[in-house]
């Protein structure tokens, strides 16, 4: 019998991920590994990890990685890529990392058209620290630092990073995907592959925003978190290609 779906070499064979049940961080990390393996570039890849749950990735993945200061992943990736252009360098960042504390680094790297790939995990909440308000938290959605939920007058509105970066001239590729169904998971896989291919082709900044879940801090079991993701998150963050100059 032929194995038609195998565990990727991009994650360690003997390790169970540290992520909560149903958390799509695990899914995306798996997809990245599958893409790197398929493209046969795993041995030249460096992952730049953001702070927060992203850090759980370092023990789970099998290849080179560096943990960046909170929010600085795009700057760290810039340093690696510019000084070592032969490496494939991608950042793996959550919404707090990419869109809040690291906003300057994210926008500036995109504006320079830095030849890196960004995998941006948007689950609308701070996961590792315990469910605080994120720049991407939905209106009305409760957070441990917004007990009455996000209020526009007080907290402003959810940030749409694909659309914000789409105001810039330099970025090559911006797509928003999800992993809420097998079909969308395969689309995410394809988007990640495209982002990496763009980098190999020297086309500059690519970002895949993956709208995901946080069952633990949303206070929902994994299957209920899928419903919330489908009904609420994807209404605020519609999926699709925002820009494709690849």
């Amino acid at each position: 019998m032929e194995k038609i779906y195998a565990r990727t070499k991009g994650i360690r064979p003997d390790v169970v991920s540290g992520f909560c049940p149903g958390c799509m961080h695990s899914t995306v990390i798996k997809l990245i590994g599958e893409v790197l393996e398929e493209m046969n570039i795993i041995d030249k890849t460096v992952a730049v990890l953001g702070i927060g749950c992203c850090g759980l990735k370092m023990e789970y993945m099998s290849y080179d990685n560096i943990t960046s200061p909170h929010g600085r992943a795009c700057a760290v990736a810039t340093g690696i890529k510019r000084s070592n252009p032969d490496s494939l360098v991608y950042t793996y960042q959550g919404d707090g990392d990419f869109a809040s504390i690291g906003l300057a680094e994210s926008v500036s790297a995109a504006n320079r058209g830095e030849n890196i790939s960004v995998i941006f995990i948007n689950n609308g909440i701070y996961g590792m620290t315990g469910g605080q308000l994120a720049p991407t938290t939905l209106l009305g959605m409760k957070a441990s630092t917004a007990p009455k939920g996000r209020i526009a007058e007080e907290h402003g509105y959810p940030m749409h990073m694909c659309e914000i970066l789409n105001q810039l001239t330099a970025p090559c590729y911006l797509e928003r995907t999800s992993c809420n169904t097998p079909q969308n998971t395969l689309k995410t896989r394809k988007a990640i592959k495209k982002a990496f291919q763009n980098q190999l082709d020297g086309k500059g900044f690519s970002m895949v925003e993956v709208v995901t879940n946080c069952p633990t801090n949303w206070g929902l079991d994994p299957l209920k978190s899928l419903e919330f993701l489908n009904e609420k998150m994807l209404t605020e963050y519609p999926l699709g290609v925002i820009r494709d100059n690849g």
Binding site: V48, P69, R72, A75, V76, T78, G79, R82, S83, E105
Partner: peptide
Amino acid sequence: IQGESEVASISMVYGAASAGT
């Protein structure tokens, strides 16, 4: 590289030095 801030610049150096340069 002229970084967007001191914070970004040192992070770029952290990255480049981590790549052995």
